[in-house]
Design a protein around this nucleic acid. Structure first.
Lengths: 187, 187
DNA sequence: GGCAAATGTTTACGGTGGAAATATTGCGCG
DNA sequence: CGCGCAATATTTCCACCGTAAACATTTGCC
């Protein structure tokens, strides 16, 4: 039996995280609540407390899962033998593509006030994501500055574009590759 | 009499916006609520409905006010006769300095779900802020891409830095000027 | 087999935004 | 001047949310 159906769920912690991800996909961030997650799993709304402490703990765990997915989106299909510039472009596009594919989750992942960024699990997942960009960052100038610059640019582009800020004529055509610093010099 | 004190406030709309700004400064974004604004002004929690419709309307108006302040932060003390590169740096630093000086307000300004970005007043204020960056953007490549790139980079830096993401050694020293694309070529 | 810890439930409470009915005021118009 | 309507604000009520405390059930270990 994968799960006894009475009283003890047996797998509640991951089930709640999965429920949260589903709610984000199907109903959006503003419908994501502790009670909604619990109800979807078929459990009382106070049950999550045992595993996550409070709602912030649950949302933080969901955000960490999101970071793992973001990491995968950047590295999936990334040819390690490709030239650095190409890997850089692919990682950046993976970042933005993930944000557009999962807008609600992506927003939660950066929602200070709902998520605890000091949580070690989340911090590790975020570091792993950033490391992808760092390893392929632009080469000009201070390498630390270059990687942070790429991160800022890609992250800002993802967020602003999610907010529809570029939906006016003359901006709609812009993609990450147009935005990344050190463009291929004369496109 | 600037305001009669009975029943009709007489100046409720701007008073509620001001109250919201005060709450953001003193208590933070998570303490900002429709009821808190109303209470601070000394009015019932349903009074704002007449002027803003719902809480989103109120928060959107506060965000628009924030955009106006952001615009001012970028242009204040901006010498129009200075070389473009210098004005660009000053505007970018004004952007980030504003975010750091008013973190709660800055977050609200970009909080999809609490703010209605299709509101024309807010959209106009945002356009005005962006125009400052656009007018001083980097010169290389497509000018539209260059201005959007600057915006993304500065915005991403402001948000990520507000989240303490750069608080680890090796990143703490980084400022906007290190991050802006097209660095002065050999710092 | 029995007891302690882990896991869930029930109930209750304060906070939040919104709807509906009601009260007060301002103001235009006779 | 005063009447009546529209604007403005209040009261009351409701649904939802997160949390705490007391309680129930189950697991697992000795």
């Amino acid at each position: 039996m994968t799960a006894t159906r009475s009283y003890h769920h047996g797998n509640l912690k991951p089930a709640l995280i999965a429920a949260g991800l589903e709610i984000l996909e199907s109903e959006g961030l503003d419908r994501l609540s502790l009670r909604a997650c619990a109800e979807r799993v078929g459990v009382s709304h106070t049950a999550p407390k045992n595993h996550f402490g409070n709602v912030t703990g649950l949302l933080t765990a969901i955000a960490a899962e999101g970071q793992t997915c973001l990491h995968a989106a950047m590295t999936d299909g990334l040819n390690p033998d490709a030239p650095r510039a190409e890997r850089r472009r692919a990682a950046a596009e993976g970042y933005v593509a993930f944000a557009r594919a999962h807008p609600a989750l992506f927003e939660l992942m950066w929602a200070r006030g709902r998520v605890d960024f000091s949580d070690p699990v989340l911090a590790a997942a975020m570091s792993a994501s950033f490391a992808v960009l760092r390893d392929v960052a632009g080469a000009s100038g201070d390498p630390a500055a270059a990687s942070v610059r790429d991160w800022c640019t890609v992250h800002g582009f993802a967020l602003l574009s999610l907010q529809g800020v570029f939906d006016k004529d003359g901006m709609r055509h812009l993609g990450v590759q147009d935005i990344l610093p050190d463009p291929p010099s004369g496109a």
